[in-house]
Amino acid sequence: MSPRRAKKTDVDLDNTEALEPSAGDTGAKAPPRPNKSRPSDLSDEERAADEILAHYPLAEPSLIMVLQELNDHYQWLPPKALLRVSEKLGVPFGKVQGVATFYKAFSLEPKGKKTVKVCLGTACHVRGAGMLVDELKRSLKVEPGHGMSEDGDYSLETVNCVGACAMAPVVMVGDNYYANMAPGNIGKMLKKEKPA
């Protein structure tokens, strides 16, 4: 080794107070911090997230599956639960949020009691599905994918193809299919489906 080169640890000269690392800051790994919140301190959302996370390896590839289950559970993704997922999977929150907003399967706002899904597949489109969306927007006063009707009963969504092209145009409310729909039947359908 040449005299002109110093190793980084070489700064630690015994006689150099100025460069001496202070106690407690010796570069040694800090002891693991105790989990700041005991289970009882967790909110419902965090507990739900923990329950779901228990079934998956705590790594990035699990993210989408975990969010799927959370979304199934709440019908949307509560921010607290998302923070918990980010923390536990070690995925930065920005990335979690990015994934949650990228995929259509996830909702970042609460949904109405029932979701009206209008199929906008090609077959439905050529048979007039666009008019159904317009009519639903008018009668529910909601935008597809956002918010819910004033009474909180319905959310509106458009989907690309539910794979029931033979019955086009198709509207789904919950798990019920409404085949060969026309704008004129929307009112009847909503009345029939109205949640108790």
Binding site: L83, S86, P92, F93, G94, K95, Q97, G98, T101, F102
Partner: peptide, 28 residues
């Protein structure tokens, strides 16, 4: 760059023409 620095505070959100850049968690 934010990812390289090790913070990943900045993220792209949403998709398609609506995609935008923001910091969803200011703490980061």
């Amino acid at each position: 760059a934010c990812e390289a620095i090790g913070r990943s505070a900045i993220a792209t959100l949403s998709r398609g023409p609506d995609k935008y850049v923001d910091v969803p968690n200011k703490d980061a």
